[in-house]
Nucleic acid binder design. Sequence first.
DNA 1: CTCGCCCCCTTGATCGATCCAACGAGCGTC
DNA 2: GACGCTCGTTGGATCGATCAAGGGGGCGAG
Lengths: 347, 347
Amino acid sequence: MGRSDHRPGSQLPVTPPTLADVAERAGVSRQTVSNAVNNPDLLRPDTLVRVRQTIAELGYSPNRAARNLRTRTSSLIGLRFTPAQEGTANAMMDRFVHSLVEASEEAGYAVLLFPGDDEDPIGGYDNLLRSTAVDAFVVTDTYLGNPQATWLTQQRAPFVAFGRPWDDDVARHVWVDVDGAAGTALATQHLIDRGHSRIAWIGWRKDSPIGEDRRSGWLSTMHANNLPTTGLASRVEDVVHSGAEAAAVLLDESAPTAFVCASDTLAMGVLHTLWIRQLAPGTDIAVVGFDDSQVAQVYPVGLTSVRQPLEDVAVEIVRTLRALLSHQPVESRGVLLTPTLAIRESS
Amino acid sequence: MGRSDHRPGSQLPVTPPTLADVAERAGVSRQTVSNAVNNPDLLRPDTLVRVRQTIAELGYSPNRAARNLRTRTSSLIGLRFTPAQEGTANAMMDRFVHSLVEASEEAGYAVLLFPGDDEDPIGGYDNLLRSTAVDAFVVTDTYLGNPQATWLTQQRAPFVAFGRPWDDDVARHVWVDVDGAAGTALATQHLIDRGHSRIAWIGWRKDSPIGEDRRSGWLSTMHANNLPTTGLASRVEDVVHSGAEAAAVLLDESAPTAFVCASDTLAMGVLHTLWIRQLAPGTDIAVVGFDDSQVAQVYPVGLTSVRQPLEDVAVEIVRTLRALLSHQPVESRGVLLTPTLAIRESS
DNA sequence: CTCGCCCCCTTGATCGATCCAACGAGCGTC
DNA sequence: GACGCTCGTTGGATCGATCAAGGGGGCGAG
């Protein structure tokens, strides 16, 4: 049965056909039709053909509500959807959500979005969970001391986090994350391979574990290559303006020939400073960003950027969810994926 | 009953409490508990208080599947989620989806995402519809001869389109859209107010009705102000590169002092050409884009851009959906909203 | 020829909330 | 005091699919 078996000209009847309708028409019992859908192996081949034909004729699809009620599952995955911050280059949520939708669909799940509310971070989760509206959650905003993860664990609600629990002592849940340090290491090594030796770092303030992780990739790669790092690092707010200022200061004081940034937003700031100083990105000074956002791709001088493998993250998350939901033992508590480098004119 | 009545320390029982559990504990019948939830007015005040207290004690939430089965509704709105095209500045989908999720939630709906498949454009819709998994759809990708809209209309499936049906003869469905012409008119008038008179247009190829609509806003405003337009318009592919080329040609041949573009992507191209020619955006040459994408906000020289009122679009869509679903007469077949102008350094 | 077994299929019960028709108490009216 | 009426409440039936048993026919073995 191809998935294109909807007959273009046909109108949906006022009330869709039920299992009983199909059963009567095919001359079998309800259970047999049910088996034809869910356990085809139990039927004799000729019966199966006959029932399937009737199903196609009537355009039957199992009623989701009835199935959900009986099986106590919904085939839905809940995702709290908070908007991308305006003024920031990071729009990876869009890409991630799409990947998740695709991966979920292949596993027979659909994605249910619900809004977030900072004042009551678990309100939405609580509602969906108690009304058994979703089978599991994907939690994306895992920051330090994340209340959702703790609460969901306490409720024994199945969920997978996108993002490591940085406060590792109570990390009882499963997670999938991208290795930020590996990403910046990749970027740094790429610049070294291009002949740079004075490579500067512009990152976030110290209270961000993700920022510190990304910074460590730069630091360790520099050390491994016996290159200097003193006076070459700076920590600022994640806004264009701050990136520009930091670049200006670093250029004046330490004369780097390349920049690795914790985000595309900061990299934009660096490009701005280069512009003002009439320095050509890529030829005079190399710049690498992080997240491969749309700015990186659209900016007239393409920005080299670390790209998170969000498609793989989604697939891994769904795989883990399936294991959780089928009560299979989850092999590992966390999965760490390595990003790639999208190389463009700026490096 | 505040929405924060989840007791933090409590664990969800293995099987959640049912209506019957609450009824027994409160010493009333199931129907009375149901009324307490859905029609509080029918209960005597003291009974209502007692039942509500029991509900709170047990942490009861109506089982969604059971309710859906009985009422033949799901409180879900289906949205086909296709990814933003990479290499294009347009990431408004993210903003729109969030707005839709918020607006839906306020109306008691949640948003269900399902993947799109260009080969079988109605496959996902068909499945969800036949299995009565969603109450209605929001259709976003309405292009010329859009098959989904036609098919959904034929199936009598409730849906609202974001986007006008440009082939108006078979436009039987309701829609909400943003007035692109009004947006570019706003942009053009803004430039005229700033003293520009030679204002160029860079738009899409002629086969795009949306592009032609946006172009008409520029054209009519120019005409209304008795300003020349000959030699000042060009139609290209929606990529940065093409925008840059068009800008170069226009600058050489027609000496415009300002550009209005059909997209931020094209505006990026213009900025690139200005850069190469050492022209300062905003002071030497003014540029206005369309969609207020993240590049417009993050680009070192903030790009003035037409901003679609996506929040309002979402609210309007949900309002229309509610009317459709409650079988109220829909006042008007289409709603057209006016965009605003986000003014930045480039103009 | 009969028994037993397996395979294939059928029947009744169930998930939990809502719809429906009816019922009892309280009150006013004649 | 009986009747009709309203209001709050009640028990049974229902939505459509799946679970858990139960049944009948064909075939080989005793």
